[in-house]
């Protein structure tokens, strides 16, 4: 396969969204927004029409994860609520709701490969597991001392991996809830003035469960954050850091999302100071990326389609920043939006 992605088109949105994921059946794209909404597009329809959203969450919906076999979508919001949906229904309704899964911001969700557990982590420093069937709590993994940003299961389902805002990555035994080892990603963290900057923004394991990718940035300052976007690649078994991929300049900031393909190719998106966004394909052993595009502004999420060819990148409209008053022609305050850019690997 040539690694020369062609842009297929853009789906404009009237609002900002961040996490986007394609359903395993390939028919739908879901994205979590800033006003408690989970938006849904029918990819089989002409021009991918937007369908009725999944309503009921509050705040930001950052956690999206699918059941591997059933048409179930799990979503989580920044008010601590976890929901399970029959995502293909015409008028989707929650199958179950866990109203107080966390105290506040749930940062990430992951579903176990056997489909039995959905794991969550959040600002309350907790990592928890829930039954996908009824949302009942199953396990709690205690040990993080700070905001837990991201988590993922190992392909064999034995381990859960979670990373926090200080660059601490823990490898948990799913069933005993013991922390078996840690990965040192503290290079993705800095303390600037009185701000904790950086942290583990994304975790991914390859299909074989051999390599753990930890994405984020090496911060040089807080406030208007500056960081060199970075992916650390660890041997999952030994914990040894094998590769450090620095994917840009300080203004490119964070790797917000990444995919680790079976051939170990890292596909990452970055978002930096307003306007700066990158899509990068890089092999761990290479000095330079195979592909780099900085045409899109502020890329926050990337989702592969199950067809293995298409993928979508959540970016931001150009000119998204600026001090002071700016109004549209009708005198309304101007907000931003997140164009969804579809690509195809040729």
């Amino acid at each position: 396969m040539m690694l020369d992605p062609q842009e297929l088109g853009v789906v404009e949105t009237d609002r900002q969204v961040h996490a986007a994921r394609c359903s395993p059946c390939g028919q739908y794209l879901f994205a979590g927004g800033f006003e408690g909404e989970v938006r849904r597009w029918d990819l089989d329809g002409e021009d991918s029409p937007e369908l009725q959203p999944l309503a009921g969450h509050h705040g930001w919906v950052q956690g999206l994860a699918f059941h591997p076999t059933e048409k179930r979508l799990f979503t989580a919001d920044s008010w601590g609520e976890l929901r399970c949906w029959d995502y293909a229904a015409d008028e989707p309704a929650p199958c179950w709701i866990q109203e107080s899964a966390h105290d506040g911001w749930i940062r990430c969700l992951a579903v176990s490969p056997d489909g039995k557990l959905v794991a969550s982590c959040g600002r309350d420093r907790r990592v928890r597991n829930w039954s996908t069937v009824d949302g009942k709590p199953q396990y709690e993994y205690t040990g993080h001392e700070h905001d837990v940003y991201n988590l993922t299961f190992s392909p064999d389902g034995k381990f859960l991996v979670s990373g926090d805002d200080r660059g601490v990555v823990k490898k948990w035994n799913v069933l005993t809830a013991e922390c078996e080892s840690e990965f040192d990603a503290s290079s993705l963290y800095a303390y600037h003035r009185i701000q904790d900057v950086g942290g583990v923004r994304v975790l991914a394991l390859d299909a074989a469960g051999k390599t753990l990718a930890v994405g984020g940035g090496k911060p040089s300052r807080g406030g208007t954050v500056q960081a060199v976007p970075t992916v650390l690649l660890f041997d999952f078994a030994t914990g040894e850091l094998q590769h450090t991929l620095e994917l840009g300049k300080p203004q490119d900031c964070y790797v917000h999302d990444l995919v680790l393909r079976p051939d170990n190719l890292v596909i990452a998106v970055t978002s930096g100071t307003p306007g700066n966004g990158q899509i990068i394909f890089q092999r761990p052993t290479d000095e330079e990326p195979l592909f780099r595009s900085n045409k899109l502004a502020n890329c926050h999420s990337i989702a592969l389609h199950p067809d293995g060819r298409r993928f979508v990148v959540v970016a931001t409209n150009k000119g998204s920043n600026g001090n002071g008053r700016r109004l549209d022609a009708d005198g309304n305050y101007i907000g931003n939006s997140s164009p969804l850019h579809w690509f195809e690997l040729t």
Binding site: D165, R193, I194, Q195, D196, G222, G223, T224, V225, G272
Partner: peptide, 21 residues
């Protein structure tokens, strides 16, 4: 005087860290 609140980037994680202090 506290410095470092000019959160043009990563405002929400920034405030999540700054505000409690």
């Amino acid at each position: 005087n506290s410095y470092g609140w000019d959160t043009h980037g990563d405002n929400f994680n920034g405030h999540a860290s700054l505000m409690p202090k």
